[in-house]
Structures are given as structure tokens and as C-alpha cells.
């Protein structure tokens, strides 16, 4: 199977999954007790107003027709108006997503800055003091709930040392970056341990392999053995994992956004849940699911380029 066919097949496989996702979100939202029209209008609405809105929202139609409307609206990106903010959900979501995606991006950079040097160091100095310190520290940051890490970072770096803002997002690009450091560091500290573990063990595995013995036997310098042979192979599982991680971060920023009061899509989701703002909840959930699917697809495709042995079956 050629790579083009492989990508095409993966895209076709996505269709029923996306379809099922919309169905699940739709059914679950219909399962919520309470009349959506009533929720939309608030407590002071008259029966007549409720009737009008019920008709406008299509709530008087059979359930499958409502699902049809829902699908049509999704395709045309007409996601309705937010009940809480009274603006189109698509506008709201887009402005919030930009913040979440910036968090993911900066977190990705932090993860690489932490994982690569520490993973390589821990593997090359296996069982040394450094290796043990790195591994013990990682065990701690790995089991720390992200909101706890966040609070500790705020206490240490914002309040005590006054290096970074406590919360918020700022107004200019540099301010944004400054505000993104702590949330991203919080997320990176939680995720890097897993990557470092995998990188460390794949380097150790590669060091044990025949091709490394051969490379050494033919007289390559140790540095060349490491960079050309060991790292090239050891990085493959790490890159895949990195992709999965980034996929997981979509929506994984929820709690951290709340801790640092970032105006991101995850915080929007939580706030909308609290306000029973269902048009926003369903759209945010859908968008997060779509992003995970796309990132996973991109990871699989990238993987097929990186590792020529992978079967495109």
C-alpha cells in the first residue's frame, strides 16, 4: 500500500468515528433534565416566549430531525449562540482556542527542552547519581496533580520571586508569552516524566543492539555512535509518544487554565458547564474531539515517514 493510499484510508476510517462522536454528544445533551428553551430564556420567561423559542430552536420537531439540524449546523459552522455570553459560539470558541493552542505549543517546547537532555543524560549515565536524581524527581512531578504543581509554582516563582504573573493572559504578544510560561511549565512537568522514561529505556535498548556493536567495532567515535545510530533509533518511539501527548493536551489544559485564569477553551468548557450553557459545552467538546483525531492522524502519518519498517496495513 502506498503512503497516499494509507493516508486516504485513515481519512475514510475517520468518518464513522466523527459521526459517532456527534451522535454521542447529541444524545447526551438530550438526556439532560430540563427544557433547553427554558434554560435559554431564563426563569422570567413567559409561556409564550418559551413556545416561540422552542419553535425557533426546532425543539418541537422529532428527535431525528433535531439531530439532522444539529449535523447541518455543524457542517455550516453555525454553532448557535452562547447562552451565557450571548455571542455566536463559533466566534467565542475560536478566540478561546487560540489561547489553548498557544498553551499547547509552548508546553510542547517545554516538554522537548526538558525531555531530550534529561532523557539522554539519564540513559548515558545510567545508575549514576544524576540518573537516580532525575528519576526520583520525575516520579514526584508525575504523580502531582497539575493544579497542585501550578499552585506550588505560583507560590514559588510568582509570589516569592515575582518572576511571572500570577494569573491572566495580558494584552500584547510578549505579555502573552510571559503569562504562558508557568501554565506551560506546569503541564510540561507532568508530562515530561513519561517521555523521559521512554526515551531513556529506548536509548538503553539501542545501546545494547547489534548495530551499535557493529558501529563501535568499525571504529566510529562514541559521539558518532550516539548521534548517528543510538539517537536516531531511540527517538522514533519518543516522537510517536510526543504526538500522542500533544493530542492528549488538547483539552488536557482544562484544569491548568482554571488555575492560572487563562481565557482558554478548556476554562470556557468548565465555565459553560457551570452556567449550563449547552450550545457552548457541546461545541467545545466536539472541537476538542476533532483536534485529538487530527493530531493522532498526523502522528501516525509522521510515524510512517520516520520509521520505514512500519507496516501501512
Amino acid at each position: 500500500m502506498s503512503r497516499g493510499q494509507y493516508i486516504l484510508r485513515r481519512l475514510v476510517q475517520m468518518v464513522p468515528v466523527v459521526f459517532a462522536i456527534t451522535l454521542i454528544i447529541f444524545i447526551m445533551l438530550r438526556a439532560i433534565p430540563g427544557d433547553p428553551a427554558q434554560t435559554f430564556l431564563g426563569d422570567k420567561a413567559t409561556d409564550q416566549q418559551i413556545e416561540i423559542v422552542t419553535r425557533e430552536m426546532g425543539l418541537d420537531k422529532p428527535i431525528y430531525v433535531q439531530y439532522g439540524y444539529y449535523l447541518r449546523n455543524l457542517v455550516t459552522l453555525d454553532l448557535g449562540d452562547s447562552l451565557k455570553y450571548r455571542v455566536p459560539v463559533s466566534t467565542l470558541l475560536w478566540s478561546r482556542l487560540k489561547v489553548s493552542l498557544s498553551v499547547v505549543l509552548v508546553t510542547g517546547i517545554f516538554i522537548m527542552l526538558l525531555s531530550l537532555p534529561l532523557g539522554i543524560l539519564a540513559a548515558l549515565k545510567k545508575d549514576s547519581l544524576i540518573d537516580n536524581i532525575v528519576r526520583s524527581a520525575l516520579m514526584v512531578t508525575m504523580v502531582m496533580p497539575s493544579f497542585y504543581t501550578g499552585i506550588l509554582l505560583i507560590i514559588g516563582l510568582s509570589i516569592k520571586l515575582d518572576l511571572f504573573p500570577v494569573s491572566g493572559y495580558g494584552d500584547t504578544f510578549t505579555e502573552h508569552l510571559h503569562h504562558l510560561v508557568l501554565p506551560s511549565l506546569t503541564l510540561a512537568l507532568g508530562i515530561s516524566p513519561i517521555l523521559i522514561r521512554v526515551l531513556r529505556s529506548s536509548i538503553l535498548e539501542a545501546l545494547d543492539s547489534d548495530y551499535v556493536n557493529t558501529a563501535r567495532a568499525k571504529g566510529l567515535t562514541e559521539q558518532k555512535v550516539i548521534t548517528l545510530h543510538v539517537l536516531r533509533n531511540a527517538l522514533i518511539p519518543t516522537v510517536t509518544l510526543f504526538g500522542v501527548t500533544i493530542g492528549g493536551l488538547m483539552g488536557g489544559t482544562v484544569i491548568t487554565e482554571k488555575v492560572f485564569a487563562l481565557p482558554g477553551a478548556g476554562a470556557l468548557l468548565v465555565d459553560s458547564v457551570a452556567a449550563r450553557d449547552y450550545p457552548t459545552v457541546q461545541s467545545a467538546t466536539f472541537i476538542f474531539a476533532m483536534m485529538v483525531i487530527l493530531v493522532n492522524l498526523a502522528t501516525d502519518i509522521l510515524y510512517s515517514f520516520l520509521d520505514p519498517r512500519v507496516e501501512l496495513g
Binding site: A20, M28, G248, V254, G266, V270, A289
Partner: peptide, 22 residues
């Protein structure tokens, strides 16, 4: 496995929050 694919498409926390919200 299709059911796994579908559940997997949702970010874990987002799906849990969504279900808890419902």
C-alpha cells in the same frame, strides 16, 4: 475496537467533565 476508537477520540478529561456535567 470501533467503540474504543470513538471513546479514544475524546480527550479523557473533556469527556469526563462532559459526562459529569450531564
Amino acid at each position: 475496537m470501533r467503540a474504543v476508537d470513538i471513546v479514544q477520540a475524546f480527550p479523557f478529561l473533556v469527556l469526563v467533565i462532559f459526562i459529569v456535567s450531564v
